[in-house]
Amino acid sequence: MTAFEAAGLTRSYQLEGVTVDALRGVDLTIGDGEFAAILGPSGSGKSTLMHLLGCLDRPTSGVLKVGGVDVSTLDDTKLAELRNQMIGFVFQSFHLLARTSALDNVALPLVYRGVAKADRRKRARAALEAVGLAHRLDHRPSQMSGGEQQRVAIARALVGDPQVVLADEPTGNLDTRNGEEVMGLLERLNADQGVAIVLVTHEPEVANRARRQIHVRDGLIERDVA
């Protein structure tokens, strides 16, 4: 089984009448349980690639299979369901709902899966325990440190048992110590639970902790080092 399988992937945007090619033909396969980093300078197309892999966006051309499913065959509703089932997201700026407890933030993906409330809370609690935040269940994001908030976000990414976690600059807003902690957590999840992790970063020292580095430049894969 492969988490992602991309062939000839392109993505271009119309910006004020000018066509910008963000991706110009990417072939990429990421297997189950892999720990890969996508590296590149800003404007290289790594964020675009990440959005395509996360099914937040559709390729202009090329084929993308997520968990073996060709996303071009899915309508928006099915794509949303695919995201919900297969992919967990971790963002640079956490993206937690303010005024909502850690527990309810973590349970949110299960709401859209139609899981009953008691079950949701049970699973969300387990996910928070797994990231070491059993003592922060009822705290709101504003009552937690950045490192804790990112761990809540990781718990939210994991609560639905995804096949892969996409982490977009997960340490970008954290100090070294907290960044270290988050990376350790991702490594542990990859090792213990077999969740594939794809992290997007421009920091080589973060990328070096992945077992595979995919270098993106000018919309193409420049180097793929395992």
């Binding site: 928006d76 949303a80 859209y112």
Partner: peptide, 16 residues
């Protein structure tokens, strides 16, 4: 807008 984007990323469908 950001909240809506997040909800969609987490699997909210258009109708949700």
């Amino acid at each position: 807008t950001k909240e809506i984007g997040l909800r969609k990323a987490l699997g909210a469908r258009q109708r949700d």
